[in-house]
Amino acid sequence: MLETNSTLERATFGGGCFWCTEAVFQEVKGIQKVISGYSGGNAPGKPTYREVCSGLTGHAEVIQLTFDPKIISYRDLLLIFMTTHDPTTLNRQGADVGTMYRSVIYYHNKEQQQIAKEVFEALKDVFDAPIVTELSELETFYEAEDYHQDYYKTNPRQGYCSYVITPKLNKLRKLHADKLSVK
């Protein structure tokens, strides 16, 4: 939990593999912390990666951000999120297929819900297909296993990182250079 006198806020997004989404947001100014994890499922107890990948838990791979809204707004985080993955494919991001890879925004309060709806409306004509990103209230967030945390930072030469995450980061740098702490 955040301290009640804290000015930091949280956001929770799923845009396919959490390694990709984590790597994107680790470069954004105002992000204090990025944690890979799972949310949105219905299985009892804390799920494991293997259980989530089975598709049986209903969980999505997500990241939870702690951010400073004085430096970056929730709206800007959503714009980065929506333009660094494909929000028009259902249960798929590239070669990653299944409900665990769905595009989803888990809002933490009604204000975040409203901002997400406004961003959907603003971006509806930007994509060639309708936005299918799920918008749901966050119920529970489970932190993923330690080896999933900071994955790209610790494995930049791993095949998936080289072929999937590095191009995604290049797109991020091209589209959102003004919002990045790393150029």
Results as ranks from 00 to 15, higher is better:
T154K: 14
S73H: 07
I131V: 10
V34F: 02
G14I: 06
L56Y: 04
L56P: 02
G159N: 12
Q32I: 13
D128H: 08
L77M: 12
Y74N: 07
K117E: 15
Q149H: 06
A116M: 11
Q93R: 04
K29C: 11
E111T: 14
V28D: 00
L90S: 08
E137F: 01
A60V: 09
V34R: 01
F67Y: 15
S39K: 09
Y101A: 10
V104Y: 04
T48R: 02
F127Y: 11
G30A: 08
V182L: 13
R75V: 02
V62K: 10
D76T: 15
P167A: 01
R173N: 08
E118H: 07
Y107F: 15
V119Y: 11
F67R: 05
Q114N: 11
I72K: 04
Y160M: 05
C17F: 10
E3R: 14
V34I: 00
K46R: 08
R92T: 05
E137S: 14
C53D: 04
I131F: 05
C20Y: 01
T154I: 14
Y38E: 05
C20N: 07
V126Q: 13
K171R: 14
A144W: 10
E139V: 12
G98A: 10
Q93P: 03
M82E: 00
P47W: 10
K46L: 03
Q64M: 12
V52S: 07
I63P: 03
L135V: 03
I115V: 15
G98W: 07
K183T: 11
K117F: 07
S103K: 07
G94Q: 09
E61F: 06
Y163W: 09
S39I: 10
A122D: 12
L135T: 01
A122H: 06
Y160I: 01
T166N: 02
H176P: 10
I31A: 00
N109A: 02
I63C: 04
E143T: 15
I131H: 09
M100D: 11
G98Q: 12
Y38I: 12
K33W: 01
E143N: 13
Y106I: 05
K179W: 09
S103F: 06
T48M: 06
Y151N: 01
L135S: 01
F141M: 13
I31T: 00
K70N: 13
E143K: 15
E139R: 06
T133I: 05
D76V: 07
K168C: 03
T99E: 15
T48W: 05
A60D: 11
L8M: 13
K124L: 03
T99I: 13
G94Y: 14
K117T: 06
T7C: 08
P130M: 05
L90Y: 14
Y151M: 01
R102P: 15
T4S: 14
E145G: 05
A144P: 11
C20W: 01
T84I: 07
T99L: 10
P130L: 04
F141G: 10
D150I: 00
G55H: 07
K117P: 01
G16I: 00
V24P: 02
L78V: 07
L169H: 05
G16L: 01
K171Q: 12
N109F: 01
C17L: 06
D86E: 12
N5K: 13
Y107P: 10
E137N: 03
Y152H: 15
F67K: 05
N109Q: 03
L78R: 11
Q158C: 03
